[in-house]
Computed example of a mutant assay.
Amino acid sequence: MLEVMRRALNGETDTPPAWDELDLVDITVDGVRHTVVVLGYGLLLTLVLAIPGAMIIGGGLGGSEGLLVAGVLVIALLYFAGVIAMTVILPVATGSFLRADSIAAGFDRDVLTSVGTNRTMLMAVVMAFAVNIIVSIGSTLLGITLIGYFAVPFLAFIGQSAIMYVWGCGFADAYEEEYGEPPLATATSGTHTGRATTGTVSGVDDQMGDNDVNNSGWSDDTDDDGFGTSAWDDAGDSDSGGR
């Protein structure tokens, strides 16, 4: 599944990945690492809900039943809000994880806030949610019959692949809108480092071939006497690189 999204990030959307092209060890390791990212957000959501939930229920037990019911409703509302947040966060976190091939990148706050609030990415999340509903309905209908029951895993596999494809395309488009280039163009083994830059570094005398880009009068001295060879010297003087 992750390979489907990775190829979508790379713009390879013409053909799905073939099983004989995949390394079982690599995709297993990727799956385990991605699980760490998912569990990290799951643990965070649990803590966010558990702390206020325990306080509300604890206060309600010592008071009226009405207060306890109100506390349960508040917890349910927080849980619903958390599920919606995870629906948006997980696709972005997965895309960031695949972009940099790093668990830490899955928790990159800069990418989460910029891409996660991008309209294109939000539309992709909605589309993926719609695909999930369609697959769920189809699985329910197929499960009515014995033959259809055995087809449910295949439908689930196709549906999950479609969801990852939608996530990947949405993340790639949203990332390019936010950062001005495809997601894999600036991939590093870590968190997001911003847009890639080209050319020379400002304020530094960079060498271009055998000349200094900021001073054409300086060049690599290669006189016959051997003085100054591979050393930078003023080509306009008469010392031929002598020291």
Rank of each mutant, 00 (worst) to 15 (best):
I137T: 03
G199Q: 09
V131Q: 11
A174E: 02
W218S: 04
F154H: 04
D224F: 08
T222P: 07
S189V: 14
A185I: 02
A151S: 06
A187R: 00
G209C: 00
V166Q: 06
G209A: 02
E177S: 15
D223A: 04
N214D: 08
V204D: 02
A185M: 15
C169V: 14
A162T: 09
V135T: 10
V131G: 00
E181F: 13
D212V: 09
Y179I: 00
Y175T: 02
R195F: 04
D212F: 11
Q160C: 04
A196M: 15
L141Y: 10
N211Y: 06
A156P: 03
S202N: 14
T191F: 05
W232R: 07
S136N: 05
A172G: 01
S161V: 12
V201G: 08
E178H: 11
R195G: 03
M208N: 12
V135I: 02
A151G: 08
T191K: 11
D212L: 15
A196I: 07
H192W: 05
I147S: 04
M164F: 12
G199C: 04
G228L: 06
F150C: 06
E181N: 10
I158F: 15
G217M: 08
G228S: 07
W232V: 06
W167L: 07
T140Q: 15
L155S: 09
S139P: 09
D173C: 03
V204I: 13
A162E: 02
P153I: 14
S136K: 07
F171R: 01
